[in-house]
Every structure is written in C-alpha cells, then in structure tokens.
Amino acid sequence: MKSLTLRYSGATVRDLNDIREFLESAILNLGGDENIAGDLVLAANEAVTNSLLHGYGDQPGAVSLCVETEGEDLLVRLLDSAPPFDPTTVPPPDINRPLEERPLGGLGVHMMRQLTDELVYRATDDNRNELTFIKRGVLSPVQ
C-alpha cells in the first residue's frame, strides 16, 4: 500500500483550491489516470466543502486527506472533527425531474455517490468523521 497525506489544523474554504491540486497530483502520482483523478477530486471536493461550510460552520477546522492504494483500488480518505454526519444516509435526488421542479442544491452527496464506486462512512474511535471514496480496479496490478 502507498499513501500520500495532506493535513490542515485549521482549513477554510480558501484552502479548497490547494486541496484539489493536492488530490489531483497525489492520485496521478499513485497511478490513477486523469479521468479517475477528475472523478475523485470532484467527489472529495464536495465532501470537504460540506465539512468546512456546514460541519465547522465556515470556521477553521481540522481536515486530513489521504490518498491510498489498496491492490488495484484507489481510495481517498477524508477525516474531520466536525459534528457527526453520515452523507451516505442522504436520500438521492431525482435528476430526471425538470430543473424548475428540483430544489436548488442537494447535488453534493449525489456527486460523491455517482463519481465513486463506493462511498463508506464511519465514526472513528476518537469521534471523527471518516469518509472514504473508493475507485475499484483502476490501478495496474504491478502498482
């Protein structure tokens, strides 16, 4: 297993651009292609944004992002210390309804689900939120 980690003790939305750049670079460095990087960056960006804006109430908060390989799978693990929130319990929107009948917003978790093969949430033993974005079978076996 290989991994690359970025940690902030007090991240804000101003750090999102750097976070996206880290994720893209780490994914490419660990053997993912540009398409996989695009999916995971979009998905993780939504989760980090939710954490910073809603979890921490737009105040600086601790955030850790780890890009890992597990065999042929590529994972992005997001850890924060915001109040517990499990996005996998959010009901999916109906994206086939016309735009005027849809509520504004509510697409962040949908993007997280659609752009990954698996989205896993758990509360850690030290009461942090851990959200893992998984792309299955995207790495060469020799990685």
Binding site: L42, N45, L99, E100, L104, L107, G108, H110
Partner: peptide, 28 residues
C-alpha cells in the same frame, strides 16, 4: 471544475431567465 455550488448557480440563472418567459413554461 464545477462543484455542486456551481451547478446551483447555473440552475439559478436558468430559473432567472425562465421567469421572464411564461411561454417557455408551457413549452417545457
């Protein structure tokens, strides 16, 4: 990159333009 907030912005522009054209609603 376009995030969900960016999508929301596009949605709002769509609704803004739509609000000025009642015929569009019937056609839609």
């Amino acid at each position: 990159y376009i995030s969900s907030a960016g999508l929301r912005a596009i949605h709002m522009v769509y609704m803004l333009l739509r609000s000025a054209d009642p015929v569009d609603e019937e056609q839609a």
